[in-house]
Design a protein around this nucleic acid. Structure first.
Lengths: 229, 229
DNA sequence: AGAAATTTAGACACTCTTGTCTAAATCGTC
DNA sequence: GACGATTTAGACAAGAGTGTCTAAATTTCT
């Protein structure tokens, strides 16, 4: 059934472009309206495509939804791993480097379009499609958390941090970095760059007060000088 | 139009009971299915009531939805303030007391039925009903965060903690206490009591490593004994 | 028991949406 | 320019859900 030269890509090119634009538009509409409220006509309009084309490509509202989630999951995971690769393994300025990492994680994986959309779909439809989101869970949290934890473990091994449980530390790192953004996330808003930086700065400062080596020692010495009198 | 003795309550009693049962059932259905997917027939069945009665009481799907959100907001806020009242102002064992507080906050305000439902509705329909959730925002986060922050400020003033910005500390306290529960929350699950306690314990320990006075001194002395050789 | 209010079941009109089908139009390629 | 594949517009059947209406049944209070 293949039309021409290339062995794997069935349709020439415009075909694939439409597919992408449909999935893109569908992601937006599913997020705004929820699965039940999403209207295929509207998706078609937003994709700049006729309704029939939507059916030609995906056959079914549910299949379209599944395609959307797979798409988002894949891109989000890729983004997260790309960002994890920028983790400061040999930091010059631990605080600044960790803050930068936290900001990148937020901007590139959590606050961007894909991150927001995937998070919202998981929230709204997660219970209805357990298998679908189980996949996300295994590929996402199941693999990214350990990856981040491993980086923190290495940092601890290198003498930069004092950590007992790297998994706990990794989760707490993110909890702290996002502590100030929760309310905004709740209502689907996107925090400004400034807010992200501020939250990351405050979070990392606290994180290092708890786990940083030199800092905590310095702090303690000052404190014991005061307290030990 | 009042029927009898009591001056404020229009209908006898069964009336009000039905109203509650309808709003209750509606909350569950709206959460499971989303506003668009929620079916009034189903709500009626789950409330043990005829469909017409639903319309008699609330007139409209949208009005019913608004009643649900108001109901949840009110109860959740009451629960939060009741829990804040148990904040350990004069702790005997700071770590244990703060852990207890974190557990109570989670169990009574975040993991309970009302908390889960309200959170989900805000996530799914928040963007569509800005005014409605603005009310929640003002009454909820707008008043509870400062209340918690004030308690931490008092604790700092009493010499139990070293805190620069009580607002930041309050947000970070919650971020840490919930750090291990995020994935479960995402998919709408309810963490077990054990998980809640574990997360709170780890979170509070880190919180006190960062902000606690004595503990941090003790820790530092131990650390400086090792490091200062 | 009796009167008033409330609830119920069922039918109903109306709208909206999904998914299919067809014939014409458009696109890309040779 | 011609061919094949894809896209398009529009009509269409089928189903589901909202909100209304009515008359009968039930509850509640006196």
């Amino acid at each position: 059934m293949k039309s021409s030269v290339s062995p794997d890509i069935f349709p020439p090119r415009g075909h694939e472009a439409k597919r992408v634009s449909i999935v893109d538009a569908a992601a937006g509409v599913f997020c705004r309206e929820g699965f039940a409220g999403a209207n295929i006509d509207l998706i078609a309009v937003e994709a700049g495509v006729s309704r029939q084309t939507v059916y030609n490509h995906h056959g079914d509202k549910e299949k379209l939804f599944i395609a959307v989630v797979r798409d988002l999951t894949e891109r989000c995971n890729a983004g997260i791993f790309a960002t994890i690769a920028t983790f400061p393994d040999q930091p010059k300025d631990l605080e600044a480097d960790l803050t930068g990492f936290a900001v990148r994680l937020n901007q590139n994986c959590i606050c961007n379009r894909d991150g927001k959309f995937l998070r919202k779909l998981i929230h709204t439809e997660g219970e209805r499609y357990p298998e679908l989101f189980a996949e996300w869970r295994e590929q996402g949290p199941g693999r990214t958390w350990p990856a981040i934890a491993a980086r923190f473990a290495r940092l601890a091994y290198g003498g930069y941090l004092t950590i007992e449980d790297p998994d706990v530390a990794a989760r707490q790192f993110l909890g702290l970095a996002n502590a100030e953004l929760q309310t905004t996330f709740m209502l689907g808003g996107t925090p400004s760059e400034e807010e992200v930086v501020q939250s990351a700065r405050n979070g990392v400062r606290t994180f290092l007060r708890a786990f940083g080596k030199r800092r905590s020692v310095a702090l303690v010495e000052k404190q014991s000088a005061l307290a030990g009198a």
